[in-house]
């Protein structure tokens, strides 16, 4: 398959303006067809310019705001010179005191980033919101046989050195506990 549309735009430029040419050329062209083609051109240019300008608009907003579907695509664009990574997360603690992460779907979303955003928002909103989320997670965990050994949920922010993490230094370099709650009647 060869590149067409984009290339053809340049490649067939000399061939003339398609229907415009055929409409204007007369051969079978009905009266008024040229005007209709003109209207079509105005419509096409309007739609194209409108959509492309709308796409570019977020670049000119101050401060830049991420939205949907018009975005500046800011993910991974900031100057992250430091590998330190703070992660808001929910942790399950079993009766022996061992900890393991609670998966995103039990936090409230199958999307890991949505789950993280939910945790971060509840932490920002204060201890009460964090406790409410904690209780919701605990209720969902209580329904899961796989997590039958989990007796307590913690909402916390753990900070890791992300590069050192993959060299074996997996322990957080800093931790902050925001809320804790028991799982069901276990």
């Amino acid at each position: 398959m060869s590149a067409g549309a984009g290339g053809e735009a340049a490649g067939t430029a000399a061939a003339g303006g398609g229907a415009a040419a055929s409409a204007a050329a007369g051969g079978g062209a009905r009266p008024g067809e040229g005007a209709r083609w003109g209207e079509r051109k105005v419509y096409a240019y309007g739609v194209t310019a409108g959509l492309v300008l709308l796409m570019l608009a977020p670049l000119f907003r101050r401060p830049p705001a991420d939205s949907f579907p018009l975005s500046t695509y800011p993910m991974f664009s900031w100057g992250r010179h430091d590998a330190r990574t703070a992660v808001e997360r929910a942790i399950g603690v079993d009766s022996r005191g061992e900890r393991r992460p609670i998966p995103p779907r039990l936090v409230g979303s199958e999307e890991v980033l949505q789950a993280k955003a939910t945790l971060a928002q509840s932490i920002r909103q204060g201890a009460r919101a964090a406790r409410a989320l904690c209780r919701g997670i605990a209720a969902r965990v209580a329904e899961q046989d796989r997590y039958a050994d989990v007796v307590k949920i913690e909402i916390r922010t753990d900070t890791f050195d992300a590069v050192a993490f993959f060299d074996g230094q997996e322990a957080p370099v800093d931790s902050k506990l925001h809320a804790t709650c028991k799982v069901g009647a276990r």
Binding site: F76, R80, A83, T85, V87, R89, R100, P101, I102, P103, P104, V112, A115, K116, D158, F160, A162, V163, F165, F166
Partner: peptide, 11 residues
């Protein structure tokens, strides 16, 4: 590194 660590941390 950051993206993979947060995924591991979030299960």
């Amino acid at each position: 590194a950051y993206d993979n660590v947060r995924k591991i941390a979030l299960g």
